[in-house]
Computed example of a mutant assay.
Amino acid sequence: MKYAFSTLGLPGTPLDRAAALAAHHGFHGLELRAHPEEPLHTATPAAERAAALRTLAASGIAVLAVAGYARVAAPGPDEPVLAELRALVRLAADLAAPYVRAFPGGGDPPGPDDDTRAVRRLLAAAPFAERHGVRILLETHDSHRTGAAVARVLGGVGHPGAGALWDVLHTWLGGEPPDASYRALAAHLGYVQVKDVRSARDLTPVALGTGVLPLAEAVAAVPRDGWLCWEYEKRWYPAAELPGLLAGGRAYLHGLAADRPRGPRGHGQA
């Protein structure tokens, strides 16, 4: 199993520093938050993208995904959403990243029109992503927080350029057990985003294994050759600090992966 962490935990940190932290603590990759507040985003010039790729290669760190903010189920015209998805795909391709993260962003509760918009936009964007060697992953989040809801959309898309990102927090908040989330998402799964929080009412990030999320059950459900990405949301909780937790977090994930039962979902080493 391979491990990454999100730069949401290191807001505004230069890429060389984030990559050095990842390498030092035994992580294999980074999920890059693509926002104008960050070093890399869709307006970053080509020369800076190339320099970033060289920095990452020198550190031995891969970009697992470009974490964008396109909302594929949101009301409104399609073209701005599609333009945002295309820009994120180009950024991911320039950074040799296999995935782009997208949010649902539909209504609360979601209605049939939300699914229809999401399917239509992903169907339009998925071939473009595939041509660039990238897959757009719809995260279990906001209006479609369960695996069942995301799988419902992706079943309507049916294209290899679109898939799922399983955020364990949101499926848990949606009342969906990890094994049910995995069953719903297995045919679409790109990678799994893990985190830990104090409670359902207090989502302040805490060290992995010290909160309430069913992380052992989630890790046990996913393939042995997959990626686990730790999303520590410092950007939204300024008092939180990630660097001092990285060693323990990496060890915790490795322990969960090593302890999981061997079975039909894969064999091999974590």
Rank of each mutant, 00 (worst) to 15 (best):
P127N: 04
L30A: 09
E233S: 00
G268M: 14
I136M: 03
P110K: 04
L56K: 06
M1C: 07
V81S: 03
P14V: 06
Y252Q: 12
V222M: 05
A83I: 09
T140F: 04
T171I: 07
P80T: 11
R265F: 05
S199R: 10
A34T: 06
L213H: 00
R71L: 02
G244S: 12
T55C: 10
H132F: 06
L242V: 11
D113W: 10
A240W: 12
S6Y: 00
D16H: 13
W236T: 15
G263N: 08
E139A: 06
M1P: 03
G26N: 00
A257L: 13
H35D: 14
A4L: 06
G226F: 07
G9L: 08
Q193C: 10
K234R: 15
R135C: 07
F103T: 03
P45C: 03
E31A: 11
P127E: 05
A129R: 00
P14W: 01
P238R: 06
P264T: 06
L123D: 02
G263H: 14
R121E: 03
Y69E: 13
L32V: 11
G249K: 12
G9A: 03
S143A: 12
T171R: 04
E241S: 14
L15A: 01
A186R: 15
R33H: 12
L208T: 08
H254A: 14
Q193E: 13
F5C: 09
G12V: 08
R54A: 15
H141E: 02
A148H: 13
R135H: 02
T210S: 14
V150D: 10
V100E: 07
I61A: 12
E231L: 07
Y252I: 13
R250V: 12
L56E: 10
G26F: 08
L165S: 01
D94E: 15
V157D: 03
E37C: 11
Y99K: 04
R145A: 09
L165C: 04
A207L: 14
Y69L: 09
R120G: 01
D115H: 09
V66Y: 09
S181E: 02
A218N: 07
A57M: 09
T13V: 10
P112W: 05
R71F: 00
A74L: 05
E79F: 09
G60M: 10
A46G: 06
R71C: 13
G244F: 12
G60Y: 11
A92S: 06
L185V: 09
R135K: 10
V150W: 10
R121Q: 00
V66F: 06
G29T: 07
G12N: 11
W172F: 15
P264D: 09
M1Q: 07
D94T: 00
P104S: 12
L169E: 13
T210H: 14
A4K: 01
R152P: 00
G106D: 04
A149G: 11
A22K: 03
